[in-house]
Amino acid sequence: MVQITGYKVFEKENGDLFFSLIVQGGVEAVVSKQTGKTYLTARTARVSCTFDEAMCKSLVGTSLPGTISKIEVEPYEFTIQETGEIIQRTHRYEYMSDEDAVLTKNLHREEVL
């Protein structure tokens, strides 16, 4: 299960607004690469939606079936909001329904030989 914890407003080039919901998974323990110590965190992801701001506000606190998965991507720069530090990442987090998570886990892409 994931929980909707907020929403974010974006403006298109033409001035129209659109929204995405911020979803957060459960608590998980992670070992720091720098210190080797364990800390607790929760994965978050943004999910595009067709809702207006009033609907987005009303959905905060709602639980949805699914998980937030770590997806490998091409390297990109990421700014840590708390410190302003710019780091390079090779993953992003994506919301997946329970059905999508099962398919992703059990199906493998065909490799080119």
Results as ranks from 00 to 15, higher is better:
residue 63 S to D: 14
residue 64 L to V: 02
residue 93 Y to V: 00
residue 106 N to K: 06
residue 11 E to A: 10
residue 57 K to F: 10
residue 64 L to D: 02
residue 20 S to F: 00
residue 57 K to L: 08
residue 79 T to N: 12
residue 90 T to C: 12
residue 75 P to F: 01
residue 8 K to E: 08
residue 13 E to W: 01
residue 34 Q to W: 00
residue 7 Y to N: 01
residue 66 G to T: 03
residue 101 A to R: 07
residue 113 L to V: 05
residue 52 D to W: 00
residue 18 F to W: 11
residue 92 R to F: 10
residue 37 K to S: 15
residue 21 L to E: 04
residue 80 I to A: 09
residue 46 R to Y: 07
residue 67 T to P: 00
residue 95 Y to G: 05
residue 8 K to A: 13
residue 8 K to H: 09
residue 56 C to V: 02
residue 69 S to G: 06
residue 1 M to L: 08
residue 81 Q to G: 06
residue 72 E to C: 05
residue 35 T to V: 11
residue 66 G to I: 00
residue 107 L to Q: 09
residue 3 Q to P: 00
residue 14 N to E: 07
residue 46 R to W: 07
residue 83 T to M: 09
residue 25 G to Q: 07
residue 40 L to V: 02
residue 74 E to F: 04
residue 47 V to G: 06
residue 107 L to P: 00
residue 59 L to A: 12
residue 77 E to F: 02
residue 52 D to L: 03
residue 4 I to L: 13
residue 113 L to R: 15
residue 41 T to H: 10
residue 31 V to Q: 13
residue 24 Q to I: 02
residue 25 G to S: 09
residue 84 G to P: 01
residue 7 Y to L: 06
residue 57 K to M: 12
residue 37 K to E: 12
residue 87 I to W: 03
residue 20 S to Q: 11
residue 33 K to G: 08
residue 92 R to W: 04
residue 55 M to Q: 09
residue 27 V to G: 13
residue 15 G to A: 11
residue 42 A to G: 10
residue 60 V to C: 14
residue 32 S to M: 06
residue 34 Q to K: 14
residue 93 Y to K: 02
residue 104 T to G: 07
residue 78 F to Y: 10
residue 1 M to F: 12
residue 27 V to E: 15
residue 82 E to H: 06
residue 7 Y to M: 01
residue 31 V to N: 10
residue 65 P to S: 11
residue 64 L to F: 05
residue 38 T to Q: 15
residue 31 V to L: 13
residue 86 I to N: 08
residue 68 I to R: 03
residue 82 E to K: 14
residue 19 F to I: 04
residue 61 G to L: 09
residue 111 E to T: 07
residue 17 L to I: 04
residue 65 P to Q: 12
residue 39 Y to N: 11
residue 103 L to W: 07
residue 51 F to S: 01
residue 80 I to P: 10
residue 103 L to P: 00
residue 37 K to Q: 14
residue 10 F to R: 06
residue 62 T to M: 15
residue 47 V to Y: 12
residue 94 E to Q: 15
residue 98 D to S: 15
residue 80 I to V: 13
residue 109 R to E: 15
residue 109 R to V: 07
residue 50 T to D: 13
residue 111 E to Y: 00
residue 94 E to V: 07
residue 64 L to Y: 04
residue 20 S to A: 14
residue 34 Q to M: 14
residue 12 K to E: 05
residue 12 K to T: 00
residue 102 V to M: 08
residue 61 G to S: 11
residue 101 A to L: 02
residue 9 V to H: 04
residue 71 I to A: 08
residue 66 G to M: 06
residue 33 K to N: 06
residue 16 D to R: 10
residue 43 R to A: 06
residue 54 A to C: 04
residue 68 I to C: 05
residue 8 K to P: 03
residue 88 Q to G: 03
residue 70 K to S: 07
residue 48 S to C: 08
residue 21 L to M: 06
residue 93 Y to F: 12
residue 50 T to L: 13
residue 8 K to D: 03
residue 99 E to L: 13
residue 76 Y to W: 05
residue 112 V to S: 11
residue 75 P to N: 09
residue 38 T to R: 14
residue 42 A to I: 01
residue 10 F to M: 03
residue 54 A to W: 00
residue 78 F to H: 13
